[in-house]
């Protein structure tokens, strides 16, 4: 289970990275087209907003949660005694499960409705948007699964141990390669 969610989360993270690269290239080509050739790529703005941004923001959430890297305030936590730390960790994950479940539930209904009516943006150009809607329930659904795996892991050990070994991580340790 842990192996599977790790693999899927990593894959989605890489997909987000690829989308980011595409977004950059798409905007750059649009700028070059406007400046040099007096033309532009139809619908760039809507594609960036409805596809690239949505994918870049939501695909990595499971990856982030698997590694416990969502941002929280550690000011008071650091002074908690161990049992309280344990409770705080489990509680934080439980609330996260609730939140992302709400999101997963509602956005999957939305995605299906959006598909059923063939949702699109009616602006300067027609841009079909319903496929992008499915990024949300897929991302949030996986987040819920990851958080369930995490809460089981957290309930089992009073120590704060990482869910996935840091070694298997995508090289954050090299962030500060210059620091001795």
């Amino acid at each position: 289970m842990k192996w599977a969610v790790t693999r899927i989360s990593n894959t989605m993270e890489y997909a987000a990275a690829a989308v980011l690269m595409l977004m950059m290239l798409h905007i750059v080509i649009d700028v070059i087209a406007k400046y040099l050739f007096s033309t532009s790529i139809p619908g760039t703005l809507d594609v960036v907003a409805n596809y690239y941004m949505v994918a870049t923001v939501y695909l990595p959430v499971a990856f982030v949660e698997l590694r416990g890297r969502s941002i929280s305030v550690d000011l008071f936590y650091q002074w908690f005694p161990d049992p309280m730390k344990y409770l705080a960790r489990v509680f934080g994950t439980a609330v996260s499960i609730l939140f992302f479940s709400l999101l997963a539930y509602q956005t999957s209904i939305d995605a299906v409705q959006s598909f059923a009516k063939g949702e699109f943006v009616d602006g300067a150009y027609i841009v079909i948007t319903w496929p992008a809607r499915f990024v949300l329930p897929i991302s949030f659904g996986l987040v819920v699964i990851v958080l369930l795996v995490r809460i089981v892991h957290e309930l089992r050990s009073i120590e704060d141990t990482p869910l996935v070994p840091v070694d298997h991580d995508i090289e954050t340790e090299s962030l500060y390669e210059g620091v001795e």
Binding site: S70, I71, S72, V73, D74, L75, F76, Y77, A88, R89, F91, G92, V95, S96, L98, F99, F100, L103
Partner: peptide
């Protein structure tokens, strides 16, 4: 909730 280290985005949303 923030003081007991519930993630910030989750806390605000809930």
């Amino acid at each position: 909730l923030l003081a007991v280290r519930t993630p910030i985005g989750v806390t605000l949303g809930i």
